[in-house]
Design a protein around this nucleic acid. Sequence first.
DNA 1: CACCTTTTGGATCGCTCGATCCAATACTCG
DNA 2: CGAGTATTGGATCGAGCGATCCAAAAGGTG
Lengths: 193, 193
Amino acid sequence: MARPRKFDEARAVDAAMEAFWAAGYEATSTQDLCDATGLGRSSIYNTFKSKHDLFERALARYMERKNGELAALLEGELPTRQKIRALLQRVIDEECADDADGRGCLVVNSCVEVAAHDPSVAASLERDYGVRLEALRAVIESGRRAGDLTGDRDARTLAHLVIATIGGLRVSARAGVDRAALEAVADAALAAF
Amino acid sequence: MARPRKFDEARAVDAAMEAFWAAGYEATSTQDLCDATGLGRSSIYNTFKSKHDLFERALARYMERKNGELAALLEGELPTRQKIRALLQRVIDEECADDADGRGCLVVNSCVEVAAHDPSVAASLERDYGVRLEALRAVIESGRRAGDLTGDRDARTLAHLVIATIGGLRVSARAGVDRAALEAVADAALAAF
DNA sequence: CACCTTTTGGATCGCTCGATCCAATACTCG
DNA sequence: CGAGTATTGGATCGAGCGATCCAAAAGGTG
C-alpha cells in the first residue's frame, strides 16, 4: 500500500449529500461537489465512478440517516397515535425551519426530480419506501394489539397514508403553505386512525 | 407591420409545457424546446425573453388548464364527498396511466424542483395554490350547508387536506406505490370529512 | 533511505448549455 | 411595385458541463 487518503470517504458522501439536498441532482455540478467536499476532481473521480454514482451513495446515506431517526421515534414510549403525530410534526418543523432554505427532503425531491428518468434510483427509492412502510405498519399493528388504536382500517393502508401525508405536507410547504395550516392538515389526516 | 409570424404563440407555449412537464426545468434544454415547438432558436428568443420566461408561461398555461378541469369537476352534480373522491381518483389514474411515463404533475414537480430557488416561480405557485384552496373550500362549505357533509372540521383545513393528499399520492406514485394502495390511501384520507 | 504504488492538484478534453447576432427571407403598406 | 420592417434559420458566442489525463507529491514497505 502506498500513499493513504487524506480524507474520509463517509464525510465526503455526507458533504455531497448536503449539496444534492440543497440544489437537486441536475443543478448540482461537479464543481459544486468539489466545493462541498473540499476535494479535487481527481479525488472524487478516483473514489466514485461518476456524479451519478456519488449521488446514489449520497441518497443511500440520507435514507440510512432518516430511517434511523424514524426507528428511534417509533421505538419510543409515546402512545401510537402520538408517535404518528410527532412524526408529522417533525416533518412540519423541518419544512418550516428558518434556516432550512427550502431544501425539503432528499427522498421526496428525488422521487419527483430523478425517479422517472433513472431506473436505478427509482429502484432504490422503492426499496426505501418499503422499509418505511414496514416500520410504520409494524408500529400501527402493535399499537392496535395493545388497544392503543381502536380503528379497524388495514394497518398497511394506514402506513401508506402516513407516508403519503408526509409527502403531501412537504409539497404543500414548498407551495408556501404556513405552519398553522400544515399542523391542521396533520391533525385532520389522523382522523383515519 | 412587416413579416407576420408563421406560428401560433399559444401552441408554442403548449409544446414547451409538454417538454418541461416530461423532463423538468433543469433537464430541458433550449434545443429540447426547439424540437418540441418546432421553432428555431431565433423565434423562441424573439418571442420569449429566455428559457425561464418561457417556463413561467408554460407553467401558467398548465395551471390554467388544470384549474379549469378542477372547476368543471367541482361544478358537477355529484355529492360533495364523491366530488372529492373523484378528484383523488383522477390523480391516481393520471399517475398510473400506462402512457404517462412518470411525468406526474407540473405544479408538484415545480414546487419541489424549482420553487426553493426561484422566488418568481414560487410566488406563482403560491397564488395557484390559493386558487385551488378557495375552489375546494367553497365546495366543501356549500356541501356542508346542503347537509351533504356532516363533519364539523374547518372547511379551509379540509381543503388544505385535499391538496396535500393529492401531493402525497403523486409523490407516493413516483416512489413506485401501486394503484390499489393509492386508492386505499384516498379512501382513508376521506375519513376526515 | 530509496522504491513503488496511490493520491492529489490542475490542465485539459469534447460537448452542450443558454443566449446573441446577422444575413436572408417574406410579408405589409404606401 | 418597391420600400421598409419583423421573422426566420443558422452560425456563433463565452461559459460551464461531466469526465479524463498526467506529472508531481506523499507515505508505507523493503
